[in-house]
Design a protein around this nucleic acid. Structure first.
Ligand code: ATP
Length: 690
DNA sequence: CCTTGTCCGATTTTT
DNA sequence: TCGGACAAGG
C-alpha cells in the first residue's frame, strides 16, 4: 500500500483504465518496480532463480503499453519456444488481447526468419528460401563428405556438423580460422555453396545471415531499428556471440535494451552461449541501470536451501544471496529406486495418489529429466493409470517418416530448388526415377552448380537417359509445376490445394502399403491428415500461408492450445526446456552418475554446467520436490547398473531426506496417514455431486 | 528398378 | 529397442 501511494502521482492514468485490470504495479517489489519504470536506456537485471525476472519483463511490456508506447514497437526475445509461449501467456493476463497481439514475442530464430523473409534477396538468396533442420543438414553434410573425401579420409557427419555450426556461430568463414586445406574445411565450403544453390538455410544461417543483413545493409538495419523501439531479452546468459551482435544492431542510438538473466542458469554453453554477454553487459551497452533481485517468490526454503547448497559447489561464480519469505516447507526427498520401471511406477502412482489425498491437480505436477528418451517409460505408466499428460519438446513427432515426407512435399512446391526435400520424395511413391537417375542428376547439379530440379530440366541430361526414365522425369517435373501454379494462385485455399496435391501423388496409399500392420498404416495416415488439418486451421484462423506454416514447423513453434487442453495434465519436460517455468510439485528423475552429470560432460570438462542444469531443475519447484535415481536402467534394451549422482552428496542434510522406494512401498502405512487419506477421500466423495 | 530381409550401431541437451 | 544401412532376390 505504502509503495503504491508513494508512487501514485507518477502513475499515468492509462494504468488505471479497465483494460489494464490485471496490471498493478504494486504486485512488484521496489527493485522490480524500479526495473519496470526504467524504460529508457540500457537496463541489466541480474538475478537468481525465481526472483521475478520474467515477471519484470512482462510487467515492463505492460507498463510501456500503458505509457502509450505502440505495442508493435516492443520486442521481447527468449531462447526457447516454450519460454516465448509462457511469456505470451503471462502478458495476456496483463493487457487486453488487441494490445498483446502486436507485441513481438519470439525466439531469436523466429525473429530472424521474419527479417530474412523480407530482405534476404539482398544477400543473393531468394525470399522463398527453405529452412533445414538438424536432420536435413546432417544428411546433406553426409552426402558431401562421401562425395568429397578421398579413400583414406574419414569424417563423421556429426563432427563436421558441429564444427561448421561452431564456425558459423563465431562468424568465421572457415572451420578453424586459417584452415583452408582440411577435409572439414572443404566440406564446409561446399556445404555453404550448396545450401545457397538450393536456396536453403540452416539454423545457424538464420542468425548469421540476419547479422549480415543488418550490418551490411543500413536501410534494412534502420527499418528494423525503427520498428522496434524497445528491446527485451530474457535468459540473456544463454545468448551466443551472434545473438548479442543482433541485439546490438537492432538497438539504435537510444539503446533501449533491457536484458535479464542469471549466470547460475547458464546451460547452453554447448551451443556457444557466452555468459560473458551478461556479465560484461556494460562493455556492450555503456552505463546501464543495474537491478539485482534477491527475494525468491517461488520456492519453499527447503527447496531454495537445497538449490543454494548445490550451486555453491561451482567455482568462479558470482555469489548471490537468495532468500525466500516462504516457510521451510516439506523436505526435499531423494528416493532410491531399484530400476527405471520402479521409478516410473513410483512417481506415477504417487501422482495419482496425491491427486486424491492432497487435492492436487494433474497440471500441478511436472516430471523433469536429462534426456528426452527418459520420458517414454513415464508416459507408458501414466497412460496405464489414465493420468493426462503432455510432453514438451522432444522430436519424436517430427522424426516420423510421414511427417518428414509431407513437409518435404510442401517444401518442394514452395521452393523447387530445395534438393534435400526433392530427393526425399522424388521416388516416394516409386515413379520410375530410381537411384541411378538421381545419382546422375545430382552429379550434373554439382558440376553445373545448379539445383537437382534444374538439372532434371536440362535437355542434354534428358536425352542421355532411357526413354522410360526421361518420360518419368518429364511427367514428375510437369506435375510439380502444375501444382506449384495452383498453390500460388491468388485467393486459393492452400490447405485444400495441399490436400489435393498429396492425394494426387498417391503418397498415402504407398505409406499404408509399406506398413507392417493395418493399424500402423492408419496411424501414420492419420498423422498426415491431422497435420494438413492443423495447417488448414492456421490458415483460416490466422491467415497463415503454407510458407508460414512450414517455418513454424521447422522452428518447432509451440502449438497454441485450445481452452480445454490448456495446461491440463502432468508436464513431462527436459531440464533444458523447463528453464523459466515453474510447477507446484516437481519430480526430477534419473539422478544417476553418467546421466546427470552426463558422461559426455565429464569428458568435455563441463560438469559445472551439469550442476547448473540440476540447479535449474530444483528451482522449478514451488512446494515439493523429489529427486530419484535408479540402481538399474534399461539401455539399448538391456539393464545396466547405475549409481546415485555425485551431485546428491552435495545436497544439505538440513533440507533433504533420503529414502528408498522399495522400503517405502513395504512399510506399513501409519494409522495417522490412513485416517488422513480416508478423510480426504470421503470429503472428495461427499463433495462430488452424483 | 523395386521389395524384402538381416545386421549393426546409436543416445545429451535446442533452434 | 528401434531405425537405418546394405545385400540379395523378384
Ligand atoms: N513481487 C512479487 N510478488 C509476488 N510474487 C512474485 C513477485 N515477483 C515474482 N513473483 C512470483 O515468483 C515466481 C517466479 O517469477 P519469475 O518466473 O518471473 O522468476 P524468474 O526470475 O524469471 O525465474 P527463473 O529465472 O527461475 O526462471 C512467479 O510465480 C511470480 O509470479
Amino acid at each position: 500500500m505504502a509503495i503504491n501511494s508513494s508512487l501514485a502521482p507518477r502513475v499515468p492514468p492509462a494504468i488505471l483504465s479497465p483494460l489494464m485490470s490485471g496490471f498493478r504495479l504494486f504486485d512488484l517489489n521496489p527493485e522490480q518496480e524500479r526495473a519496470v519504470r526504467t524504460t529508457e536506456g540500457p537496463l541489466l537485471i541480474l538475478a537468481g532463480a525465481g526472483t521475478g525476472k520474467t515477471r519484470v519483463i512482462t510487467a515492463r511490456v505492460a507498463f510501456l503499453i500503458a505509457q502509450g508506447v505502440d505495442p508493435a514497437q516492443i520486442l521481447a526475445v527468449t531462447f526457447t519456444n516454450k519460454a516465448a509461449k509462457e511469456m505470451r501467456e503471462r502478458l495476456a493476463k496483463l493487457v487486453a488481447p488487441e494490445q498483446a497481439k502486436p507485441v513481438t514475442m519470439s525466439t531469436f530464430h523466429a525473429l530472424c526468419v521474419r527479417v530474412l523473409r523480407q530482405d534476404i534477396d539482398k544477400l543473393g538468396y531468394k525470399r522463398n528460401f527453405s529452412i533445414y533442420d538438424e536432420g536435413d543438414t546432417t544428411g546433406l553434410i553426409k552426402k558431401i563428405i562421401t562425395r568429397t573425401a578421398a579413400k583414406d579420409e574419414k569424417l563423421e557427419a556429426n563432427v563436421a556438423k558441429s564444427l561448421i555450426s561452431k564456425a558459423k556461430g563465431n562468424g568465421w568463414s572457415e572451420v578453424t580460422p586459417g584452415d583452408e586445406q582440411s577435409l572439414a574445411a572443404a566440406v564446409f565450403a561446399k556445404y555453404q555453396q550448396e545450401l545457397k544453390t538450393m536456396n536453403a538455410v540452416d539454423f545457424d544461417d538464420l542468425l548469421l545471415l540476419t547479422y549480415k543483413l543488418l550490418t551490411e545493409h543500413a536501410a534494412v538495419r534502420e527499418k528494423w531499428q525503427r520498428k522496434f523501439r524497445y528491446l527485451m531479452v530474457d535468459e540473456f546468459q544463454d545468448t551466443n556471440r551472434l545473438q548479442l551482435e543482433l541485439v546490438t544492431n537492432l538497438a539504435d542510438a537510444r539503446q533501449n535494451v533491457a536484458v535479464v538473466g542469471d549466470d547460475d542458469q547458464s546451460i547452453y554453453g554447448w551451443r556457444g552461449a557466452e555468459v560473458s554477454n551478461i556479465l560484461e553487459f556494460e562493455a556492450h551497452f555503456p552505463n546501464p541501470t543495474v537491478v539485482k533481485l534477491e527475494q525468491n517468490y517461488r520456492s519453499t526454503n527447503a527447496i531454495l536451501g537445497t538449490a543454494n547448497a548445490l550451486i555453491k559447489n561451482n567455482p568462479r561464480r558470482r555469489p548471490k544471496q537468495l532468500w525466500s519469505a516462504h516457510e521451510g516447507g516439506a523436505k526435499v526427498r531423494v528416493i532410491g529406486m531399484t530400476d527405471d520401471r520402479q521409478e516410473a511406477d513410483f512417481i506415477t502412482s504417487e501422482i495419482a495418489q496425491r491427486a486424491v489425498t492432497e487435492g492436487a491437480k494433474h497440471e500441478d505436477f511436472a516430471v523433469l529429466f536429462r534426456m528426452n528418451a527418459q520420458s517414454r517409460l513415464v508416459e507408458t505408466h501414466l497412460r496405464e493409470l489414465h493420468i493426462p499428460y503432455r510432453v514438451v519438446g522432444g522430436s519424436s513427432f517430427f522424426d516420423a517418416r510421414e511427417i518428414k515426407d509431407l513437409l518435404a512435399y510442401a517444401s518442394v512446391l514452395l521452393n523447387a530448388d530445395d534438393d534435400v526435400s526433392l530427393l526425399r520424395i522424388i521416388n516416394t511413391p516409386a515413379r520410375g526415377i530410381g537411384p541411378s537417375v538421381v545419382e546422375r542428376a545430382t552429379e550434373l547439379s554439382v558440376h553445373k552448380r545448379c539445383s537437382v530440379f534444374a538439372a532434371l530440366q536440362d535437355g542434354e541430361f534428358r536425352s542421355g537417359l532411357s526413354k522410360r526414365a526421361a518420360e518419368a522425369i518429364a511427367a514428375f517435373t510437369g506435375f510439380l509445376d502444375a501444382w506449384e501454379t495452383k498453390l500460388n494462385t491468388p485467393l486459393s485455399k492452400q490447405a485444400e490445394v495441399l490436400r489435393a496435391f498429396i492425394g494426387e501423388t498417391g503418397y498415402l496409399a504407398d505409406l499404408k502399403r509399406s506398413c507392417k500392420t493395418q493399424d500402423e498404416g492408419l496411424k501414420r495416415e492419420n498423422k498426415v491428415v491431422e497435420m494438413i488439418r492443423w495447417f488448414e486451421d492456421d490458415e483460416e484462423a490466422k491467415g497463415k500461408s503454407l510458407r508460414d506454416f512450414l517455418d513454424d514447423m521447422m522452428l518447432r513453434e509451440e502449438k497454441e492450445e485450445d481452452e480445454e487442453s490448456k495446461g491440463s495434465g502432468v508436464t513431462l519436460i527436459t531440464l533444458h526446456a523447463a528453464k523459466g517455468l515453474e510447477f507446484p510439485h516437481v519430480y526430477l528423475i534419473g539422478l544417476e552418475e553418467g546421466l546427470l552429470p552426463h558422461d559426455r560432460s565429464k569428458m568435455e570438462g563441463t560438469v559445472d554446467e551439469e550442476r547448473r542444469l540440476l540447479y535449474v531443475g530444483i528451482t522449478r519447484a514451488r512446494q515439493t520436490l523429489a529427486l530419484t535415481w535408479c540402481g538399474h536402467r534399461i539401455k539399448y534394451g538391456s539393464p545396466m547398473p547405475g549409481t546415485a549422482s555425485s551431485f546428491i552428496k552435495e545436497l544439505p542434510a538440513e533440507w533433504v531426506e533420503h529414502k528408498n522406494a522399495t522400503q517405502m512401498l513395504n512399510a506399513p502405512v501409519a494409522a495417522e496417514t490412513v485416517k488422513g487419506k480416508f478423510g480426504a477421500l470421503r470429503a472428495l466423495l461427499e463433495n462430488t455431486p452424483s
